[in-house]
């Protein structure tokens, strides 16, 4: 990616997201004038999205003489960590919350170079179980049912 591009691309992305939010706000229902308390529900988001677009354009104008500010390349561990977060998110939605925590904790430690089996077991087995039990007992948090959580809730 070119140096200028790395500076302006995030600003273009901001303008596009705000543009999308601006356009989307026209799908919000309008309320009859007698029920309006100030302005229509879509007006304020439109105002804010408009400000973001204006600021992004200002940023782009400022960036016309931008120098080289390309961020350093990200290491392998970062990409593995993002993948692990993605896998964790998928497991939370489709699998079991406790199992996802186990895979997430042990997986992150593995991605970051931990290879000692007792440590991985402590992080991937003991810690998630203890934390889930603690939140359940101390704060009455009920975790979503799944094949492992069911063993606890019965």
């Amino acid at each position: 990616m070119g140096t200028r591009l790395s500076t302006i691309l995030p600003l273009i992305a901001c303008a596009l997201i705000a543009g999308l939010a601006y356009g989307w706000s026209y799908t919000f229902k309008d309320v009859p004038p007698m029920l309006i308390r100030g302005f229509q529900p879509g007006a304020f988001p439109r105002l804010v999205a408009g400000i973001i677009i204006a600021l992004s354009l200002l940023g782009l104008w400022h960036a016309r003489h931008a120098g080289d500010d390309r961020p350093d390349a990200l290491p392998r561990e970062f990409h593995l960590s993002v993948l692990m977060l993605g896998l964790f998110g998928g497991l939370v939605l489709l699998g079991d919350f406790l199992f996802a925590l186990m895979i997430g904790c042990a997986g992150l430690a593995w991605c970051w170079g931990e290879r000692r089996v007792p440590v991985l077991l402590a992080l991937g087995l003991v810690a998630p179980v203890v934390v889930v039990l603690f939140f359940d007992a101390a704060f009455q948090v009920r975790f979503p049912r799944g094949f492992l959580i069911n063993l606890y809730y019965g």
């Binding site: 925590l101 997430g104 430690a109 440590v119």
Partner: peptide, 18 residues
């Protein structure tokens, strides 16, 4: 950090859910 941050992750996620 490879031990500390998975634990931070664990508390973060359970906290966000709770």
């Amino acid at each position: 950090v490879r031990i500390l941050w998975p634990l931070v992750f664990l508390f973060s996620i359970v906290g966000a859910y709770a």
